[in-house]
Simulated scan of single mutants.
Amino acid sequence: MALAEALDAQGQSKAALDWMVRAAQGGWMPAVSRLGLWQLVGHITPKAPALGVARIVQAAQAGDPFALHLAAILDSGAVGTPRNLGRALYWLARAAEAGDGRAACQLGLLCGDPDLSLAALSAAAATGFEPALAALAGRAPTVPAFDWDAIAAAADLSAFAAPVARNVESESPRILSIPDLLPAWVCGYVMALAEPALDRGMVVDDDGAERVKDERSNRVMHFGLVDSDVILELVNLRISQAAGMPPENAEGLGVLHYAPGERYRPHMDYIPQTPENARQLEVMGQRVRTLLVYLNDGFEGGATLFPRLDAAYRPAAGGALIFDSVTDDGAMDPRTLHEGSPPTSGEKWVISKWFRTKALRPTAS
């Protein structure tokens, strides 16, 4: 498996795949789960989502930590398999039982029983998992004997199923606002998870390349499939339903951080229709809708500005803004030029979710 990964990093795809297959056929469960991921997403091998999911489940049933993490994501995110939140919680319980702090933290945050929740968060904090330490917020940790299946059974997912109230801010272009889309504890978890991986945001140029440019000074973290987890997949589903878009058409969850003075100057979210972008647009489709969730209060300034509409929006923490980058007939809409304005004091945290016209993830079908 180590040789396969080294060859893959060097671009020797065929040799890498041959060695990974050998490792998997030899019964090495980390290789089984890795090969399953490759088949699921079509990395150096043709896409075979059903086979990929089966391999990941096989390795998860054998207790492989990476497979348990992936299996929970696949079931909660309906990636290559029908959505099954009960089974996703089962995988989290098995991972927590094996000492996975992130899994224990998720179960603790989702648990509707205060005592069981505190016990799970304490177990997660004992592993050093930072979001669990933040979630405890000074509460005295407790580590009694407990049953992870009981904690999973006490999960309360109602925060992700609450009614969504959409307010029309603009008919044309279409701009909507949604108060209280995500609860405070979800916002806190997302920020704590993203912070260690923040990096300078990049801009898509007309030639299709992403580059660091002066027009964007904020930092960003994009959660890919492997970076995700059950809570993030519930966030993805909640956001997709609020936006009225298929979850599989969404790009990875982006978390944006703005320190005082940092900004994203006026820009469009749609992909320029240039020859260099033709292949990307053919495979992934156009970006047609954006949903932003403001994750915190406690800062001044920092509104989302639409200079051509003379409009500015700054939802309260947990509130969202939705706007279309194209017209009803699919044409790029330059009126949606917008800016992530800088906070003048404090830090600004925002989720950014872009939706495409084509599916980006394998679905159950």
Rank of each mutant, 00 (worst) to 15 (best):
L3Y: 02
A9H: 11
G11Q: 07
D18A: 09
M20Q: 09
A24F: 09
G26C: 01
A31L: 13
G36M: 00
Q39W: 07
G42L: 01
A48N: 13
A48Q: 14
V53C: 14
Q58R: 15
A59R: 15
A62E: 05
D64R: 07
F66M: 13
A67C: 08
H69F: 05
H69T: 00
D75R: 14
G77P: 02
G80M: 10
G86N: 14
L89M: 11
Y90H: 10
G99W: 03
D100F: 02
D115Y: 08
S117P: 10
A132R: 01
L136N: 05
T142C: 13
P144M: 08
W148H: 00
D149N: 00
D156K: 09
D156N: 14
L157R: 10
S158K: 06
A165H: 11
I178E: 10
P179H: 06
L181P: 06
L182R: 15
P183K: 04
C187F: 09
C187I: 04
L198Y: 12
D207P: 11
R211G: 00
R211T: 11
S217L: 11
F223E: 02
V230F: 12
M245H: 10
P247M: 00
E248P: 04
A250G: 15
G252C: 11
G252D: 12
Y258N: 14
A259N: 02
P260M: 03
P260W: 05
R263W: 11
H267W: 08
T274F: 04
E276Q: 15
Q280S: 05
R287I: 12
Y294Q: 11
L309P: 02
A311P: 10
Y313W: 15
A316F: 05
G318C: 03
R335Y: 14
G340W: 02
P342L: 07
G346I: 04
V350Y: 06
F355K: 08
F355C: 07
P362W: 04
